[in-house]
């Protein structure tokens, strides 16, 4: 297993330029951008700065994009214009509309299916019923729709050349015929636009709302524990994660040839461990 890890490409994921310092010489690729929130999309100058950083360090570059509303689609357009001038840039898409738009307008981009669209089954409470469920169900929860040839072929036709995977507690089964990246050590479980972090330091917060963003996520992180949740959950911004540090030993059988280290989350959640 160690050999696989050593020969693998290692990437570092950040969404904030302030965290470029978290990139180390062991990283060969920079993943830059937010997966879960359009409010955190970089401005064109910020994207240029990240690209320059990658070029100076001889890092490959991947722009990460979230799911977006109409407003988010508009915010992305200047970023595409910056990115198109850079050779061999990848884009992680977490929105079918972004995929459609890029195929229509920027077919030169190398597209990657983000983990919001890989449809793995991540909820940790599956462990609570492990002894009460049939084997077929356990197998089902290790897979996603990506193991269907129909889906793989369709995605390939749409320009998808790689898929992004999370490290499931129940293990992963999959098809190695499409290159994959594995994110570690945090697995996302759920996300929202009714951001729990938004207005969290104001006691008047109502239960359901989509408020204007004040970027409280740059200040607060949360740890949730409960006896019926097999392991702690971590909240960063609008998204919940759990930690799984055990990297599978059969990465090559899964087509995984890249590890994406969530260095920013590691830094954010450090005090919450």
């Amino acid at each position: 297993m160690e050999n696989f890890v050593i020969t693998m490409e290692k990437a570092a994921l950040i969404s904030n330029l302030d965290n470029l310092s978290l990139i180390t010489p062991k990283h060969q690729r920079l993943y830059f951008g937010p997966e879960f929130c359009q409010h955190l999309l970089p401005s064109p100058p910020e994207l240029k700065e990240a690209l320059n950083f990658a070029r100076q360090r001889r890092l490959s570059f991947t722009l990460v994009t979230p799911f977006v509303t109409e407003e988010g689609l508009k915010k992305l357009i200047p970023l595409w214009e910056v990115l198109k001038d850079w050779q061999k840039s990848e884009v992680v898409v977490n929105d079918w509309g972004v995929l459609y738009f890029l195929r229509e307008n920027y077919p030169e981009f190398f597209l990657v299916l983000g983990r919001l669209l890989s449809k793995q089954k991540r909820g940790p409470r599956l462990l609570n019923i492990k002894d009460k469920i049939p084997q077929e169900m356990w197998n089902h929860f290790q897979r996603s729709y990506l193991d269907l040839p129909l889906v793989r072929n369709f995605l390939f036709q749409k320009g998808i050349r790689r898929v992004e995977l999370d490290n499931l507690l129940q293990g992963i089964k999959g098809d190695p015929r499409i290159p994959a990246s594995l994110y570690y050590p945090y697995t996302y479980v759920t996300t929202t636009r009714m951001c729990l972090t938004n207005a969290c330091d104001q006691r008047t917060q109502p239960l359901r709302s989509i408020f204007p963003c004040r970027k409280e996520c740059s200040i607060y992180t949360f740890k949730l524990t409960h006896r019926n949740m097999p392991l702690p959950l971590f909240i960063k911004g609008n998204t919940q994660f759990f930690k799984n540090e055990e990297i599978p030993s059969h990465l090559s059988e899964l087509g995984i040839d890249r590890l994406v280290q969530e260095v920013e989350y590691e830094s954010n959640f450090h005090s919450a461990q």
Partner: peptide
Amino acid sequence: LNYEVQAFSSPSIKV
């Protein structure tokens, strides 16, 4: 779930 919630401030912005 009635979680026990712990809040932490970021490494760069302390509250």
